[in-house]
């Protein structure tokens, strides 16, 4: 595969070169980053802006079920919800995708046939990623063969933390190749990377290796998407496009449960990466319970009265 851009042709020539590049990225001051994220969180999004944001947020959801207890029935219910989130209001947009384990991908593909909703499948021994490359690639090919439009892979955090950046890079490239036409989301598990400097490095590593999306988390660890780590990743995709011309999407996942939170994330997108990312092609929410809260807020806006959990569907 060709390198992503001549500007960074030599970056991955060796482990040492990649390390020098990643460690040469500007540092991140944690307090300043969090203060900026908090400050954007105080934006007051009302009336028409709120209506716009809620519909946009719904359209950006990767409606997710990633449980050992998943069944075809559960996945079909989710697929139905994704296409028509609010059965009482057909103007409600569909979600962006349904996100499942690879063995559930065929069910999801069947259930979503003919709709705009994509099928996203996690792969690469999600969520730990502790498997051989061969297994990870097989996992990926399996999902693609089942018809997944998007692959959500996890990086080898162990290799990253041990400083084996080239190993992580090459693994992403291999998965990208295996994914073929499917769009590749690269999950960093930011809660395990632990520092903002690491998140910025991982972002660039992922983008250099060909990620179509960079994604915060699996949703399976203590700390998942936060305004600060998402802001940081938005800065990374913004800077990456400025330097390479290549636009990469961002997906915060895990822990975003309320409309208020979702709107805050959209403000981050709007004021950091910019309007070009205000589209489900470039920004996603990895979430499940968020959708119902958005739907209740949507009902409140259209009817003027507060809704309740009995007026949205349990799936």
């Amino acid at each position: 595969m060709p390198t992503i851009t001549p500007a960074f042709a030599d970056v991955a020539a060796s482990d040492g070169a990649l390390r020098r590049f990643l460690h040469g990225l500007p540092g991140v001051d944690a307090v300043g980053l969090e203060a900026r994220a908090a400050s954007l969180g105080t934006r007051s999004i009302k009336t028409t802006a709120k209506a716009y944001a809620i519909d946009l947020a719904i359209s950006m959801i990767d409606l997710t079920t990633l449980e050992g207890a998943d069944t075809p029935g559960k996945v079909r219910a989710l697929a139905a919800k994704a296409q028509h989130p609010d059965p009482t209001d057909r103007t409600t947009p569909a979600t962006a995708a349904v996100c499942v384990y690879p063995d559930m991908a065929p069910t999801a593909v069947a259930a979503l046939a003919g709709s705009t909703v994509k099928v996203a499948s996690v792969a690469t021994a999600f969520p730990a990623g502790r498997a051989s490359l061969a297994v990870k690639l097989a996992d990926t090919r399996d999902a693609v063969a089942a018809g997944a439009d998007e692959i959500d892979m996890v990086i080898d955090r162990g290799a990253f933390l041990a400083g084996h950046y080239l190993k992580v890079y090459e693994e992403i490239r291999a998965v990208k190749e295996a994914a073929g036409a499917a769009r590749l989301k690269v999950i960093f598990e930011t809660g395990e990377l632990s520092t903002y400097d690491n998140i910025r490095r991982a972002s660039w590593l992922g983008m250099l290796a060909g990620a179509d999306f960079i994604k915060t988390s699996t949703g399976k660890v203590g700390v998942n998407a936060t305004p600060a780590n998402t802001l940081l990743m938005l800065e990374a995709v913004r800077d990456f496009r400025a330097q390479t011309g290549v636009q990469v999407g961002v997906k915060p996942a895990g822990g975003i449960r309320t409309s208020k939170d979702a709107v805050k994330f959209l403000v981050l997108v709007n004021e950091t990466a910019g309007a070009d990312w205000l589209d489900s092609h470039w920004f996603r929410f990895g979430a499940s319970s968020l959708l119902n809260d958005l739907l209740m807020q949507r009902q409140k806006l259209s009817t003027g009265r507060y809704s309740g959990p009995d007026y949205v569907t349990v799936d």
Binding site: D29, T190, V221, G222
Partner: peptide, 13 residues
Amino acid sequence: HPTGAVGASGSSY
């Protein structure tokens, strides 16, 4: 000078 907390939020410094 900012301090931040070591590892408190999973990604804090």
